[in-house]
Amino acid sequence: MNIHIPTPLRAYTDKQETVSIPGATVAEGLAALVAAHPALQQHLFTSEGKLRSFVNVYLNDDDVRWLPAGQATAVSPGDELSIIPSIAGGCSKEPSI
């Protein structure tokens, strides 16, 4: 599968925007990605090994969190996995500077 890497994490994939990784499931793909680029581990996963809450992983156009099998969802070689940190905010609280 191809895994698309967001701009901030390309520093840890030798500047690659897209990484081709083997794997039969989403979880296997993510594990293979981290095995190939170990510095990604702390950016994608908590110390307990769970995907960080602000990291979205999409299999093609589907949020993996909402797929029935989650990260155990099977993937085929032509599938695309996108890693997308969330974007949010707003002026709901006073500036902290």
Binding site: P6, T7, P8, A11, F54, V55, P85, S86, I87, A88, G89, G90, C91, S92, K93, E94, P95, S96, I97
Partner: peptide
């Protein structure tokens, strides 16, 4: 104001952007 808020900071994750 055009200043970042605590919410902006807490929910900012795109380092280098």
């Amino acid at each position: 104001p055009a200043q970042w808020s605590a919410t902006d900071f807490a929910e900012a994750h795109w380092l280098g952007c």
